[in-house]
Design a binder for these strands. Structure first.
Lengths: 297, 297
DNA sequence: CACACTTACGATATTCGTAAGGATT
DNA sequence: AATCCTTACGAATATCGTAAGTGTG
């Protein structure tokens, strides 16, 4: 039994005329006749009664009509679904991004993606850097955005841009007018930062450890927004990736370039190694690669 | 997209090897390769990643696998269902029979049918003669068993045998020893019969009307069994198709051939005119035609 | 270098359309 | 006589299998 045969049968069953069915199927009468005959032979009995002047269904034909309808509808739907996925008229991508990206540059990139592919669903997992890598490795997401990982095992990393950390200061701090400050100056304030195991926290500790200094944490939170508000209300100062500069500003804090040591880290797209991307994921990767590098408006 | 292509895809997706899939499909490698390629082209994108040494699914391929499974399962089920209907390994027939047949000769015929086609379901409608004809005419049943109808409009009639009416007498009636009796003798008893619009009642009235006699009804019921019991308990006598002879005997009444006038009527199979029978109905008709004519054991 | 998939190509099968045939209204 | 489906047959198309090619472990 072939799809063509079933389509032929349904066309005849619905029009009750070979001639009309021919037109609908773009087929000659003899070809249609043979198709029906073939179907009847494979099924082992008559489906249609052709009495030269009229076409009727046999009881078995009646049984087949609704089954054929459903079968062909499912068939066409499946075909169409796959086609839509390939042409990005439909689809689904899962993406993991570390918080600093997720709540700053990502929304704009997603908006751009949505404009081009309005019916492709994007699931964003806003998780800490380490989990971004894990989710890609375990194929829970097709794409990740994170700092360059230590080990490349099981994953590929496509660099986007380098990000440097900036000092975050209360608006009334005397340091906010400086062109840039160093850590020695920054640490005159109480220090506020993210809780472990945030990558931001780890990078700060690593950087200072290299200078035999310990990070004197006065307050900690696991949300960047909370850190920003704490700084803005004068509780102390912090240091965050410059990605978060605008966010900190909006929360009422001030950002100033930070040196000695400068903390610099590469941000990029994380992919499963040797893992094929879906068409939707490829398109999203492209949009991310062009959009995330752009500075905020 | 063809059935073959989808089968080919599923085989490769499940074995993750063209070579193994080939064996399962009884196909050469190049043919399989082409089939997959064709499928990918019709869908507009890659389903499988072939890296000479390993075969993997693309995300779109992953999406297709469960859909293909279901599609092919439905396809095969439908094909099998139709095949079973044609080979009578499965099916359904609806049959209408008038009561005198339904509760006498029909059960044996149905048992014989069931023995040959154990999985073909038979629905029996035990209704009065007129309704048998109506149900066939309105295509509520494919087959009917009834007396030959007055009009053949919309139906075909295949005669089975002629049935004559017999007198039904209480066991203590002086008439039970007679070889046969006539109506004049019979009507010495009070008369018991079926209610209108039973065909038996109508035939009795018609027969006597032709002799300018009126049917003197003392008791009436709409069940043959009740009539039989009433006669058996000495309330009166009746006349029924000889088909019911055994039933009457079992109920305790006695039957004697009845003449002057003899009521004779053809019993047969009723079919929708120009209506095609299902394979199951054809088989049932055949069994009915051979079995119903046989006298009871 | 051996294995696994792809490409090339000739042979086979299938399917198609034109033309002729048959049956019913 | 006209319409509608079937059969017959030559042609186009598709599919298949053998053989050669290519890339990877």
């Amino acid at each position: 039994m072939t799809v063509k045969q079933l389509r032929a049968f349904l066309a005849v069953a619905q029009t009750l005329s070979f001639t009309q069915a021919c037109e609908r199927l773009h087929l000659s009468q003899p070809a249609l006749s043979l198709a029906i005959k073939g179907l009847e032979e494979t099924l082992g009995g008559a489906l249609l009664i052709r009495s030269t002047r009229s076409v009727r269904l046999t009881p078995e034909g009646e049984v087949l009509v609704p089954l054929a309808k459903r079968l062909l509808a499912d068939w066409d739907n499946t075909e169409e679904l796959l086609r839509q996925r390939f042409t990005l008229q439909l689809g689904r991508v899962a993406l993991a991004a570390m918080p600093s990206i997720a709540c700053n540059r990502l929304p704009r990139a997603l908006r751009r993606f949505r404009e081009r592919f309005p019916r492709v669903n994007v699931t964003v997992h806003d998780v800490i850097n380490e989990q971004v890598i894990d989710m890609v490795r375990h194929q829970q997401v097709e794409l990740g955005i994170a700092f360059e990982p230590e080990t490349r095992e099981g994953i590929d990393f496509l660099p986007l841009f380098d990000d440097t950390f900036v000092a975050v200061l209360p608006p009334d701090s005397p340091l906010v007018e400086a062109e840039s400050i160093d850590w020695k100056a920054l640490l005159r304030h109480d220090f506020i930062t993210l809780q472990r195991p945030s990558m931001v926290r780890i990078l700060l500790e690593q950087a200072l450890a290299r200078q035999q200094t310990e990070l004197p944490v006065a307050f900690e939170s696991h949300q960047l927004a909370t850190v920003g508000r704490m700084v803005a209300s004068g509780l102390g100062a912090s240091a965050v990736p410059s990605l978060c500069r605008e966010q900190m500003h909006e929360l009422g804090a001030r950002c100033v370039p930070l040196y000695a040591p400068q903390i610099r880290r590469t941000v990029g797209v994380v992919l499963g190694a040797g893992q094929e991307l879906s068409t939707a994921a490829r398109a999203l990767r492209e949009v991310l690669q062009t959009t995330l590098c752009e500075p905020p408006a």
